[in-house]
């Protein structure tokens, strides 16, 4: 009895490892391709490992495209989105959690209903709007429509509700104003929630494709997502070069993941808790 369950467990572990290898394999393939010389990729003979590993493609990717520039653009717009999301969304989340004001419920549901509007539906009017402000082809066009993040408000509201009222009341008795309480009592306590929200907002903006594709016209101003699509388009069949570009584009996100793994996962899990 015991030995059969043991063999079962070994078979299960074996199959699972196989599945994991398979699931991970595209990354390996991406890296291997990027290290090959072009002739080795575009050939009838099939080599799994790079025969003459080379970094030439990486050098070429950096020199023939603006890939570094694109990454900086992405980093800048995502960072702006992240900061502004907090500036704009944290106060209202606090108001929803702690202030009993008239119209609070209606306002809250209006904001949550905003979550149901797919961004893609707004692209035409948003484009025309930004065009009339003269903001097309500027960095602010990329992040401005991204800073109202209803899910972020929801997460912060949940968090603020968990802060005991007694803390605020004590400050009130000492004569502090709402704004003071918010900045010196609530904000320092909210770090965990802020981390989750900033990470969600960062990923949201970094991975955006359609909107920057529409508002950015100069190759200089592309974000990395648009840049890589463009890079693939202009280098048609130079697969090892294209893969090296893809690997480069992965690096910042990978580092980001290594540092914030837990927060990213917690953030996604939190969006589900609402039910």
């Amino acid at each position: 009895m015991n030995s059969t369950s043991r063999t079962k467990r070994i078979i299960y572990a074996f199959l699972l490892s196989l599945l994991l290898l398979l699931w991970f394999f595209p990354f390996v393939w991406m890296v291997f391709t990027s290290l090959k010389i072009e002739n080795e990729v575009v050939t009838k003979v099939f080599h799994f490992f790079p025969q003459n590993p080379t970094l030439a493609n990486y050098i070429k990717a950096f020199s023939s495209s603006k890939i570094l520039r694109w990454m900086l653009n992405s980093a800048f717009t995502s960072a702006m989105a992240m900061i502004l999301t907090l500036v704009v969304d944290a106060p209202i989340a606090y108001a929803f959690a702690k202030i009993r004001f008239k119209g609070r419920n209606i306002l809250f549901w209006a904001v949550m209903a905003g979550m149901m509007v797919p961004f893609q539906v707004l692209i035409i009017p948003l484009y025309l709007q930004f065009n009339s402000y003269g903001l097309i082809n500027t960095m602010s066009a990329v992040y401005l429509p991204r800073i109202a993040l209803p899910i972020g408000i929801f997460i912060m509201k949940q968090f603020f509700e968990g802060i005991p009222d007694a803390l605020e009341e004590a400050a009130f008795i000492d004569g502090a104003s709402r704004f003071r309480i918010f900045s010196s009592v609530i904000l320092p306590l909210g770090k965990t929630a802020f981390a989750t929200v900033t990470i969600l907002s960062f990923i949201n903006c970094w991975n955006d494709f359609l909107w920057p594709l529409i508002v950015m016209n100069d190759t200089d101003k592309y974000t990395i997502t648009v840049g890589i699509a463009n890079f693939q388009g202009t280098h048609g069949t130079q697969y090892s070069l294209i893969m090296s570009g893809a690997v480069i584009a992965c690096i910042p996100q990978f580092i980001f993941y290594l540092f914030f793994r837990k927060k990213i996962i917690a953030g996604i899990a939190m969006t589900g808790i609402k039910g």
Binding site: Y94, P125, L126, L128, Q129, A148
Partner: peptide, 27 residues
């Protein structure tokens, strides 16, 4: 509370109206 609640909501509401409600209606 009534005053403070709305004051704290203003930054978000501006963005919400400008980049969500307005384009929704405009579209």
């Amino acid at each position: 509370d009534n005053r403070d609640g709305w004051l704290f909501s203003i930054p978000f509401l501006l963005v919400f109206v400008l980049f969500m409600l307005y384009p929704l209606v405009y579209g």
